[in-house]
């Protein structure tokens, strides 16, 4: 299990990020990327346990005895989804600066899509990144808190 996780998790993470980035033109997107990332983390949890990320990867000490809510990873996850929400809302607000309506429900474009010569930089990607972080943060919070029980 641990050996498999060692090999699979990096691949899964790379795939997840690529899904996120290519989402605008090929199958993928923020939501799928987020869920896949969460799945990778879940795999680590199942294989190594909750504290592995802190001790093994980041090399930090874990204070024993504190509850799951004070766990450093959980705090980080909470920050992640708040950050994602801020990015998503911020990308919507940015449209206001260009005199466009904030995420209206009509079928007008919400984001501006400046097209460069070869590479396409869609501002929708920012929104999608926000979605990605919310999904990762939210699901991991649930996962680790429930898993910590």
């Amino acid at each position: 299990m641990k050996t498999t996780a060692r090999i699979v998790v990096p691949i899964v993470l790379v795939v997840a990020v690529s899904l996120l980035l290519q989402g605008h033109n090929l199958p993928g997107g923020g939501f799928i990327g987020g869920v896949l990332t969460t799945a990778a983390f879940a795999l680590i949890y199942v294989a190594y346990g909750l504290d592995y990320l802190e001790i093994g990867v980041l090399g930090r000490e874990v204070e024993s005895g504190t509850g799951i809510f004070e766990h450093r990873s959980v705090t980080a996850y909470k920050r992640t989804f708040v950050f994602g929400l801020a990015v998503a809302v911020g990308s919507g607000l940015a449209a206001l600066a260009f005199d466009e309506p904030f995420l209206t429900q009509t079928y007008t474009i919400v984001e501006h899509v400046p097209i460069y010569h070869e590479i396409e930089l869609a501002s929708a990607l920012v929104f999608d990144v926000g979605v990605y972080f919310v999904v990762v943060g939210g699901l991991l919070t649930i996962l680790s808190v429930v898993g910590g029980e």
């Binding site: 605008h24 033109n25 997107g29 929400l85 474009i109 919400v110 899509v113 869609a122 939210g138």
Partner: peptide, 24 residues
């Protein structure tokens, strides 16, 4: 208008961005 060829994703982030915002 959305600048993407994946219609599902364009709908999610461009046309129906508000719905997606609600979902997150």
């Amino acid at each position: 208008e959305g600048g993407g060829t994946n219609i599902v994703n364009v709908i999610l982030v461009d046309f129906r961005g508000f719905d997606t915002l609600g979902e997150i």
